[in-house]
């Protein structure tokens, strides 16, 4: 299948390795990957701040850039939910022939051919709010990660509690946001893991930055980073 890769702005700017992991995994599953290099942002930041006109302008740019895509895949629950659930609130509707997936959702449906080598490590999982509640991705990341031999996936206490990012909420209500983020880092520490995975660039950036500020050693990764690291590449398989 021909897949258009959507790299959300935060991922592109701060964690390009997540994009590389997506590309690697998609290619390994035998899909043709198209990466429109003039993509920028889906419009979510302005939309969530109430600036709908500006959000619509940027969302329209996104739709133009991806006009010939039939399958759009990207790493980040909230950005994918923006396309799937909120574009219509801006009056922008994808044709029914266009399918949009968070990459973990896509891989759980079309990634059966992926093979993983053993990777003994303890990893905590934080359910990103929009991936969990707006895209209903709960089992998908767990099932994929459990295919990695030796990987010990640890559920966090109150793992579905928000990390406090919330886009511009983290700036407008900074102290509240910070308090929520600290609590999240504490539950990760309490789970005795030094890597936590999630499905949203925003949450990951928030958790990583907060942990650094608290002096806690922590690696916040997108699920695809762990998958790509443990993947047996086609060369190795042969």
């Amino acid at each position: 299948m021909k897949v258009h890769l959507f790299i959300p702005c935060l991922v592109d700017q701060f964690t390009p390795q997540v994009g590389i992991a997506c590309l690697k995994l998609l290619r390994a599953t035998g899909h043709e990957v198209v990466i429109p290099t003039n993509q920028t942002c889906c419009g979510q930041p302005a939309f969530n701040s109430g600036f709908r006109e500006e959000a619509r302008e940027v969302a329209y740019h996104f739709k133009t850039i991806f006009h010939d895509a039939k399958i759009i895949v990207g790493p980040s629950g909230s950005c994918i939910s923006m396309l799937k659930n909120h574009y219509r609130e801006l009056g922008l509707i994808f044709p029914e022939s266009v399918q949009v997936f968070e990459i973990v959702d896509f891989l759980s449906q079309y990634g059966q051919s992926l093979r993983f080598h053993s990777s003994p490590q303890r990893i905590g999982i934080h359910d990103a709010c929009h991936a969990l509640r707006e895209l209903k991705l709960y089992d998908q990341p767990r099932e994929l990660l459990k295919r990695i031999p030796g990987l010990d996936l640890v559920e966090l206490n109150d793992g579905q509690a928000c990390c406090g990012f919330g886009g511009t909420f983290s700036v407008k209500m900074a102290e509240l946001s910070q308090d929520m983020a600290r609590e999240k880092v504490k539950t990760i520490q309490a789970a005795d893991v030094d890597t936590v995975v999630s499905l949203d660039g925003g949450c990951l950036m928030n958790i990583q930055s907060t942990a650094e500020g608290m002096g806690v050693t922590l690696h916040a990764k997108h699920v695809v980073e762990v998958l790509a690291d443990a993947m047996i590449s086609t060369g190795e398989q042969a």
């Binding site: 700036v171 900074a174 946001s177 950036m205 990583q208 500020g213």
Partner: peptide, 21 residues
């Protein structure tokens, strides 16, 4: 970033899309 110790992360040296280009 917002308050006290939470600092905005550094921008990556090269964006993913730059590497693609």
């Amino acid at each position: 970033w917002g308050s006290d110790a939470r600092k905005l992360p550094r921008l990556a040296k090269e964006t993913f899309l730059q590497q693609v280009r």
